[in-house]
Amino acid sequence: MKIGIPRALLYYRYHTLWETFFEELGVETVISPPTNKGILDSGSIYAIDESCLPMKIFLGHVEWLIGRCDMILLPRIASLGRQGSACMRYQAAYDVARNAFRGRQIKLLDYNVDLRKNGGQIETFLSLGRAVGKKRAQSLHAYLAARQADKAVGTAELLHQQDLLRGDRCRILVVGHPYNVYDPYVGGPVLDCLRALNTVPIIADIVDRREALERSANISSTLPWAFNRQLVGAIDIYRRYVDGIVLMSTFPCGPDSLVNEIVVRRVRELPVLNLLIDGQEGSAGLETRLESFVDIIHFKREEDITLA
């Protein structure tokens, strides 16, 4: 049996967990390739017009997996309990995909998280193990190994980023959902551009998640969405170490449209750039915005801007 995992949405947050879990169970996985134009185009055909860019990309990845695996893993997250709720897209992704590809005879593997109703993450993984025909003890063992692997990767990333906070190079905090920041088709050009402008991008997603959730209250204590809360908390953690903040959102993200406004109003001591990304082909608008933003920071740092 082969499990397909779409390289989209929550993949970027949970991939070590998922991949290790299946590996430990001896279940083969196939992951769709990094987003490219072909994937976005096919996703756009299946998504409704008003759908957000990440959702279109997600459907493109699901489409790519059809015929290449026996089951496709589709997470559905309703609530992360005290951490907050999730955007409607995470709740709907499973059903949207099932409906969009009805008649294509696909088998979906659901991964439900609703901490208000069910137990913790462990329950979710046990039922995932059951669905692929594994015993409870096997699944439990695989889950614990996956947890450990995920923690190790997270710690390594965090240590690497802490190294970047030293030295006097110009640092820009990039605040965005992992599926935007790490997607080479969406956030890739932004990170490349920032590096080409001689700055060090600091990724808000790489953070001690528990600390970030707590510190988000320093900027806003009323945000409903867990993932946004974490990003806002990361701003509070990193604000002392960076020269500017880029808020990277994809069009038309509901939670981000509210949260970005709050950040712009409440984080006053740093220049903030609100960067909205759609499926546009040209990169000229992006370059203009990032280059002029970095120029402002260099002006402030009294560096020769023609060097940038």
């Binding site: 069009f251 220049p271 609100n274 909205l276 759609d278 203009t288 915005r289 002029s292 933003f293 120029d295 402002i296 002006f299 402030k300």
Partner: peptide, 11 residues
């Protein structure tokens, strides 16, 4: 004489 902030129309 130093630019401190700017904004540009989005999409």
């Amino acid at each position: 004489g130093i630019v401190v902030d700017y904004a540009m129309n989005t999409l």
